[in-house]
Amino acid sequence: MAKNEIPLWEVFIRPRNGLSHKHCGSVHAADEVMALNAARDVYTRRGEGVSIWVVPSAAIVASDPEHKDENFEPALSKVYRHPTFYKIPDDVGHM
């Protein structure tokens, strides 16, 4: 980040209790208190939430898209992890 640029924060909102916080956008703020205020003022104007998280964007560690195949493709062939893999007669009823 260049000097004099106000840091970026990622904003997560819990729409209502019982649901998890969901990423909804970002704001610029010099510190965490102002980031929370900004998130409230920007992202909850239409009653979108009951709780806010803000995280410095720089603190997020992301997987490398180059690793996409080795990370995620191996899971696709493990069909036996899914219930539909197992054949149970309909007569048994819901299982």
Binding site: V27, M34, N37
Partner: peptide, 11 residues
């Protein structure tokens, strides 16, 4: 002075 404040003040 900054865009975030352009949302806060109208609130």
């Amino acid at each position: 002075p900054m865009l975030e404040e352009d949302l806060a003040m109208p609130n």
